[in-house]
Design a protein around this nucleic acid. Sequence first.
DNA 1: TCCTCGACGACCAGAATACGCATGGCGGAA
DNA 2: TTCCGCCATGCGTATTCTGGTCGTCGAGGA
Lengths: 228, 228
Amino acid sequence: MRILVVEDDANLNRQLADTLKEAGYVVDQAFDGEEGHYLGDSEPYDAIILDIGLPEMDGITVLEKWRADGKVMPVLILTARDRWSDKVAGIDAGADDYVTKPFHVEEVLARIRALIRRAAGHATSEIVCGPVRLDTKGSKATMNGVALKLTSHEFRLLSYLMHHMGQVVSRTELVEHMYDQDFDRDSNTIEVFVGRLRKKIGNDLIETVRGLGYRMQAPGAAGKDARP
Amino acid sequence: MRILVVEDDANLNRQLADTLKEAGYVVDQAFDGEEGHYLGDSEPYDAIILDIGLPEMDGITVLEKWRADGKVMPVLILTARDRWSDKVAGIDAGADDYVTKPFHVEEVLARIRALIRRAAGHATSEIVCGPVRLDTKGSKATMNGVALKLTSHEFRLLSYLMHHMGQVVSRTELVEHMYDQDFDRDSNTIEVFVGRLRKKIGNDLIETVRGLGYRMQAPGAAGKDARP
DNA sequence: TCCTCGACGACCAGAATACGCATGGCGGAA
DNA sequence: TTCCGCCATGCGTATTCTGGTCGTCGAGGA
């Protein structure tokens, strides 16, 4: 999961980025509206944290531009506590959520988790796929109740696949969400990680769709109709 | 749009309900956790406003029960400002949003609007043609409920045909959409793939219009000829 | 009305290719 | 040092393309 933090306060920005990285996210940072807008426009983020008061370009403007361009990624805005009109403006501009400053970092984390899982269509913080259970809250995964020992990349891969369960996820999509900018696309890293992950959770859960990518699904879930 | 308000403070409950009704929503009210849970479980609401501090059954518990039952409607929780841990717990329990008391009613309204609009975006993208069902998001196709095993070209072909259901699609059109650039037009690959696809989904669905191309249509929908 | 001819599409099967996977080695970070 | 992540290579196989042949449709003439 790849996240962009747009915040001009260098300290706060770093603090957020560190916390997010610690929680297993890939984080890009921007320190003014211009830069933030450019990055958000050109890179595929799973969520964006956006401060309202920014130099160069106001946060609301940045957000409006994204939405006008058809970008739909979840955006969490940061506002000052006493400016509740900002919140309404932000929400009407297309923000998915907000947090008022000063805030607890855990709260931002919880909201980011919620936004991401909501964007994927999941209601709760646990995603289950057959015997595998992903705890987005604790960044842990278990299989049949026992904890899986995964490296950070393996976990990111599993996490992205489970957040997009049932969908075919292309190799490039995976690369873009597991790494920050510029990564050599001409390598078979993803295949290697898929191989290792399969070795740990079994071959049945991750199906490879030749020419398209990978799809995660519970083995018995064939023919599951969207509307029973 | 139908909304449930679960709030034990009778005044606040009425105030919320009135505002919502004024905004054009249909509103049900509950005054304790038990009642709220029952209503939310049995009636199809488009959104729910849920207080955390409730008699009979705690708001978090109510929410967890709904989510455990597979209910996915958007839920907005109300928390006291100083109980930030409640927010985190609520979000992780599956809340889609929260508002801290005391709040401005406009804000609640804006958030409800946002939740409903967001929930509407989760509609599954499915195209149905007779017994065949195409899940564009999951790159999957089923026939009478069982998954079709298609190669990527076959899937692309089926996808294009189903996206233009009822229309005659020319061979060149198909070539242009299934391949990147300059492809040798003097080959019969399309016919081969149509043949293969027919072998998998039956001959009735893809009709060949001699000299023009192919048309996909549900078998029962006959008689709708473009050319008498 | 029926027959014949030309054109178009369906089908088949072998060949070439692209694709995905496993393995082992290397360098860097913990 | 040990683990982790990255890269290069080679292999096996599914998938796709090619070329050919056969069947079918439609139109025009007898």
